[in-house]
Design a protein around this nucleic acid. Structure first.
Length: 477
RNA sequence: GGUCCCAUCGUCUAAAGGUUAGGACACCACCCUUUCACGGUGGGAAUAUGGGUUCGAAUCCCGUUGGGAUCACCA
């Protein structure tokens, strides 16, 4: 049987990290089968939560990370429509069928009545009086136009058992199952019903979802059973956490996929990182492209315990991806961040060369290069450095020598400049650092900089370099 | 509260009865070096707890503790 998985988000806003990871696992399971299909289905049965444009975010995100789907609302497929609101009549039809089969019943209680009944005692389940209505009676009231919902009927006793691919065998007492609403009074199905009908109709073989569904899965199995359908394989995955107590969530203001991208994280790095949040390859490798994940992924190596999202490790991994980028690729990605904070014309190529090995996110670039625009206010104490054996006096000397040497230099590139300054040090009997260090401070006003003295000089160009050197010399006078 | 799930360094994890409990991030030190990084080398750091079973337990069983989930006309 060919593997068919589905990613079924509800269009309620942004793409969350946990969601994206679920999508990734669904995608990888499908790609593990040469004929496997990854299906995108939009679960918009709750009109109250519908957010305009949210489906576009879903499409854009999946495309951005390279998780292309084989069937979906935009590209169609043999099992459409792939948007639940367009399948509305289908659910009503199946719900009525389920009633006939005894797996559900009409209920005329208002939401308030049901709530009241339940809250009387903490531990009391909702005992639906409508369950005792005869089908004829119920149909009569429906025909009379009385508002109703269709509720699941759970008559079975004993234990419900099923196998989960991650958690193993799960046993839950039928008494624990609540008789939830399957079809709402507005005619839309709830998730509890729509997911079963759609997964069956769309021939889904593997369902990946959060482990909060573990205890409601028996309800779905009951529906499959009543219809005489075969349930899919269940792959419940543990949540992605913000800390030991809280899930990562939009409500907490936790970063979404697009937030991370906006901060300069690369989609490839994000995917790589979240794949490892709850799954491991069994080897000590941890850098994987999507294609490599497609080859390596296996359900068996999925984890059962929650994983805390660690932005620090993601940041490291992002740095690894940035370093792997080709020169031009990096320049293309970095350029917007450079020009955003810089009006001065600089040598972009050299700048990128010093930037690429030391930044971990593209978003760090503006701060990293802010001194290129203006030398910040700084204390002459900066010239004091024990290891370099420099202080303000040495620096004053060094800057004089450096200006003299650099003024004569016409071929403005790193090798030439480095040789020139090194030559000065030798000639004057000074250590390299005694020249380089003061020059670097004079050019940047900062203790640490991307690139050394001569690299900064190349980036700034001859005029600006000499101007800054002279200004610093003034400051030291 | 009932039910279900989970529990190895601070974090992500490996070890599917026999390992000096391994790796990665982070941290520290050293090396490299025109600063800082990158890179390299090394270091400290964990089996929640109490009982079993077994020649032998991180691993199997039971209890305890801690955490999470669920009990919506949300998904």
């Amino acid at each position: 049987m060919t593997v068919r998985t589905r990613f079924a988000p509800s269009p309620t806003g942004y793409m969350h990290i946990g969601n994206l990871r679920t999508a990734l696992y669904e995608y990888l399971i499908a790609r593990g089968d040469p004929d496997g299909k990854f299906i995108l289905r939009i679960e918009d049965t709750d009109q109250k939560r519908y957010v305009e444009g949210a489906t576009d975010v879903i499409y854009a995100t999946l495309k951005q990370v390279g998780m292309l789907w084989d069937e979906g609302p935009d590209i169609g497929g043999s099992y459409g429509p792939y948007i639940q609101s367009e399948r509305k009549s289908l659910y009503a039809e199946y719900a009525r069928k389920l009633v006939e089969l005894g797996g559900a019943h009409y209920c005329f209680c208002s939401k308030e009545e049901a709530d009241e009944e339940k809250d009387e005692e903490q531990n009391m389940k909702f005992e639906d009086p409508c369950k005792r209505l005869s089908l004829e009676e119920a149909k009569k009231r429906v025909a009379a136009g009385e508002p109703y919902v269709i509720r699941q009927t759970v008559n079975k006793k004993g234990k419900s058992k099923y196998h989960d691919e991650v958690y193993g065998d799960i046993e839950i007492d039928y008494d624990e199952l609540d008789e939830g609403v399957l079809l709402k009074s507005d005619g839309f199905p709830t998730y509890n019903f729509a997911n079963v009908v759609d997964d069956h109709l769309m021939r889904i073989t593997h369902v990946v979802r959060g482990n909060e569904y573990i205890s409601s899965t028996p309800k779905y199995n009951l529906i499959y059973e009543t219809f005489g359908w075969t349930p899919p394989r269940y792959v419940h995955v543990p949540p992605v956490m913000k800390d030991a107590q809280h899930k990562l969530s939009k409500r907490n203001g936790d970063a979404s996929f697009q937030d991370l991208v906006a901060k300069g994280y690369l989609p490839e790095a994000i995917i790589n990182y979240i794949a490892l949040l709850g799954w491991n390859p069994g080897t000590e490798e941890e850098i994987f492209t999507l294609e490599e994940l497609e080859k390596t992924f296996s359900i068996e190596r999925l984890n059962r315990s929650p994983a805390i999202f660690d932005i620090v490790k993601l940041t490291w991994m992002n740095g690894q991806y940035i370093r792997k980028l080709g020169e031009d690729e990096f320049a293309a990605l970095a350029k917007p961040y450079i020009t955003k904070s810089l009006t001065r014309k600089v040598d972009i190529k050299t700048l990128c060369k010093v930037l690429q090995p030391r930044i971990e996110t593209l978003g760090a670039i503006p701060e990293e290069i802010s001194f290129l625009e203006h030398v910040p206010e700084y204390s002459t104490e900066l010239y004091l450095n024990k290891k370099m054996k420099t202080d303000a006096a040495v620096a004053a000397q060094a800057l004089d020598y450096a200006v003299a040497a650099l003024e004569k230099t016409t071929d403005w590139n790193n090798d030439v400049l480095f040789a020139a300054l090194k030559g000065v040090a030798e000639e004057k009997g000074m250590k390299n650092g005694q020249i380089m260090y003061p020059v670097r401070i004079a050019l940047s006003g900062r203790e640490t900089t991307p690139g050394g003295a001569t690299e900064l000089a190349v980036i700034l160009g001859k005029d600006e370099t000499l101007a800054r050197l002279n200004a610093a010399r003034q400051k030291l006078a």
